[in-house]
Amino acid sequence: MKVNRYQLFTIIPVAALLILGLVGCQKEEAAQPAGLAPKVMADAIHAVLEADRTVYTKQVITRLVKKEKVIKASEQFEDDKALPLPAQMFRFGSELVAEKDSGFSYSLQSLWPINKQNEPKTDAEKKGLQYIADNPGQNFYTEEELGGTTYYTAVYPDVAVASPCVDCHNDHKDTPKTDFKIGDVMGGVVIRIAM
């Protein structure tokens, strides 16, 4: 098929418009990634973390250590042949997740940390932990850029659900706060999802 000069003048602009249109569509699609919205995913992850943490604290630590008094819970649980503390169980889980490169990470932090490595560090963590302390029962959501990657960052209140939580924190040598009560926000669970 032969294409004359006039037809060429028509085809080129139409093709250019089509290509631009396609690129535009692709851009629009990229702005709305498929799958769960990060907030829904973060909330779901937190629901599981919070449930497991509460079960371990109440059904294992409170029952065996406080009520039945059959075993101790200790930060040095290997040397003391004791149960790991709830915060340690939480951290061990987060470390295993970190090894799997699952696209998200989580940690337990506090404005009053026993281990100074767990105090808020990024601006989002600082704002988020302050927000959940000032607004009991509410979560904090934001986006932040770390090392060239954008993260959806969610901060959830970590509440003292049983007496071992407050006893251990109030009595610890390194605690900066000694008057926690059951029901207090002691810290926050920070979940990060890479965007």
Partner: peptide
């Protein structure tokens, strides 16, 4: 290593 792969 896992301490340093944490975005924070």
């Amino acid at each position: 290593k896992k301490k340093f792969t944490d975005p924070r």
